[in-house]
């Protein structure tokens, strides 16, 4: 039997909503695939486009950024910045020729454990269907058409 492709997904979660949502999914024993690696940040507004690009460079097959719903930000308007930046970064990676579906932005509150599990399930399946991410490395071999 051919081995199933297991994607590596990086999830950057905000401390106040999405990380608590992930915690709730855990204590409620909601099932979700173990393909996701979580980084907790204080606010999704601190996530720079650099981090997303860096994750793809280091071989992530998918990147998820999750924060509080608009209007619920612990820092009032931090996630406005997230929305602006992430909307932009999605279009940037599309232009660079990377599949923008490998990147996702979600709003998950601390009460939405079910949604967290669902998002992870859905995103993992999506990335699995896309297959391993193409290399982000610029190598001289490419120039020679090899």
């Amino acid at each position: 039997m051919a081995e199933r492709f297991e994607p590596r997904i990086l999830a950057i979660l905000c401390n106040w909503c999405s990380y608590a949502g992930a915690d709730l999914a855990g204590v409620s024993r909601f099932q979700y695939p173990p393909n996701v690696r979580v980084i907790r940040v204080m606010c999704s507004g601190t996530v720079s486009p650099h981090h997303v690009i860096h994750a793809f460079q280091r071989g992530a097959d998918g990147v998820l950024v999750a924060g509080c719903h608009i209007g619920d930000c612990h820092y009032l308007k931090g996630n406005y910045m997230t929305l602006k930046r992430m909307k932009f970064v999605q279009e940037l990676i599309r232009f660079a020729g990377y599949n923008p579906e490998r990147f996702r932005l979600e709003w998950i509150s601390s009460a939405e454990g079910v949604k967290f599990a669902e998002v992870i399930r859905d995103f993992t399946e999506k990335v699995r269907s896309l297959g391993p991410a193409p290399s982000f490395e610029a190598s001289p071999r490419l120039a020679m058409g090899l």
């Binding site: 486009p49 650099h50 690009i53 860096h54 793809f56 460079q57 932009f88 970064v89 940037l92 990676i93 660079a96 982000f136 490395e137 610029a138």
Partner: peptide, 10 residues
């Protein structure tokens, strides 16, 4: 890294 150019693009 490709991110060199993409970071500058950002």
């Amino acid at each position: 890294d490709t991110s060199f150019h993409l970071v500058r693009a950002v």
